[in-house]
Design a protein around this nucleic acid. Structure first.
Ligand SMILES: [Zn+2]
Length: 276
DNA sequence: CTAGATACCTGTATGC
DNA sequence: TGCATACAGGTATCTA
């Protein structure tokens, strides 16, 4: 579900909801959500800690705690946070973890729901966090993401462009929706070998990635089915999708018909009329 | 090393 | 209605 814009929206929502508050109670409803930690060790690591801040890195959500550790979450396909007024931490369908937090301005319950159970949480010490951070690629909305940097990343691979854009060790945070939409915006065929792009094509792709991500962050993400922000609100970028999930639709740019193919086991959408 | 396939899990849509 | 199949926003791990 969540790619960079959704994770960013959720991280901002969590920053507003829980930064400055202290974790009073923790319940792990499904232990696989915190593996390889035990539920007891997970509860122990969080209970009594104050949340200093919450931010996004790639598609990860990371909360910095007052003991210097990081409480990190990977939402994978269907992970979702909700923030609501204080109440009992009861088990519920699809609920993996719940936490009760309080601060000077009151408190609430943070719940982590996950229908498909791929999502997971960890507690990382600073060294483990650095290791993770170092493994992840460049943030596409940062100033480190230059045309030259992108060119270097694409040069290293003859795999289809769409696949390379999904590699989190190259560009961090693009998922299948935005990788496909960026190829469309750049008028590039997602099946093209990544290292076949010339300089002007790389420039187009660079601009397209930033444009599509900035716009999707501004629209608070894409809600196709599961995704909601921390307060339950839907994103609005689904109305701006040009190709993703739209095979058979008319291309708004050239009047062609949007096609679907499968690359590395995942759908790729594009317009054969205007993407080369 | 690379790149593709597979596994993980549940829900929903579609077709017979 | 019931049942089988395909597919879904991700990523770790296996295999060639
Ligand atoms: Zn077109």
């Amino acid at each position: 579900m969540p790619e960079l814009p959704e994770a960013e929206t959720i991280a901002r929502g969590l920053q507003a909801a829980i930064a400055g508050r202290r974790i009073r109670r923790v319940r792990v409803h499904r232990q696989e959500a915190v593996e390889p930690m035990s539920p007891a060790a997970f509860r122990c690591a969080l209970t009594g800690r104050r949340v200093e801040s919450v931010a996004r890195r790639a598609k990860w959500i990371a909360a910095i705690l007052d003991d210097g550790t990081r409480w990190v979450t990977q939402l994978r396909m269907t992970g979702r946070f909700t923030w609501s007024p204080p109440s009992a931490l009861r088990a519920a369908p699809h609920l993996s973890v719940s936490l009760l937090l309080y601060g000077p301005q009151g408190g609430g319950v943070l719940r982590f729901y996950d229908v498909r159970r791929f999502g997971r949480m960890w507690i990382l010490d600073p060294a483990a966090w650095s290791e993770l951070d170092a493994r992840l690629g460049v943030e596409p909305l940062s100033k480190d993401f230059t045309r030259r940097a992108l060119a270097g990343l694409l040069d290293g691979s003859g795999a289809p462009l769409r696949n390379v854009l999904l590699d989190q060790e190259r560009v961090a945070g693009l998922g299948n929706i935005y990788a496909n939409e960026a190829c469309y915006l750049a008028r590039l065929d997602p099946r093209r070998p990544a290292n076949s792009l010339d300089e002007s094509e790389v420039a187009r792709l660079h601009r397209a990635i930033r444009t599509v991500l900035r716009s999707a962050v501004e629209r608070r993400g894409t809600s196709l089915s599961d995704y909601r922000d921390v307060l339950g609100g839907a994103g609005r970028f689904q109305a701006d999708l040009k190709v993703y999930g739209r095979s058979g639709a008319v291309c708004p740019r050239c009047g062609g018909v949007v096609a679907r193919t499968v690359l590395a086991g995942r759908s790729a959408f594009f317009c054969p009329g205007c993407q080369r």
